[in-house]
Amino acid sequence: MRRLRRTYGAGIGHLLAVLGCLALAAGAVAIVAGDPVWPVMLAWFLAAVLLHDLVLFPLYAAGDRLLTAATRRPRVPVVNHVRVPLLGAGLTFLLFLPGIVGQGEPALRAASGLDTGPVAGRWLLLVAAMAAVSALVYLVRVLAARRRSPDREQQVVHGEGEHRLAGEPEPGPPPR
């Protein structure tokens, strides 16, 4: 047991967990091994990791650094009022991409008789609604901050503002 720890670098439980994982993965590969397009599946598997870790993450991290650099700290911090609707727009864009860009419409038409026509417009409205709600909340916070006495302002607004952010989780879908 000590020898295993010395050469492998961890205990038997670790080794068993890893081997179990690899065994299931091998079984899963066997399911699709006879499929002539398995290399395409593998490519999508690896692309999913690479696109997330080396494209999507650096993009949104860099965007966030730009955003925090661009918004110097005003009396009421504005950064989350940009961040939240942007993240909402990004998340919905990724999840509903096929409808928004009209990809795969022939298959959709065959299945349902429907087109993707209205989706892009609806998505833009949703994004606009999220931005508008966020801006409105910001406006309310700025007005509330102005009413307070100037010397206490900085401190109070900080605490208050964060309270509002937590209480207002994220602009939901527009009123329907």
């Binding site: 699709v32 599946m41 990809q103 959709l108």
Partner: peptide, 23 residues
């Protein structure tokens, strides 16, 4: 969303991928 841009059998790939994930 009926977007079969991946060009392989969804059922087979999603099922096999699920077992990789389970392990």
């Amino acid at each position: 969303q009926y977007d079969y841009v991946f060009g392989f059998s969804f059922y087979a790939a999603h099922y096999a991928g699920a077992w990789v994930f389970v392990g």
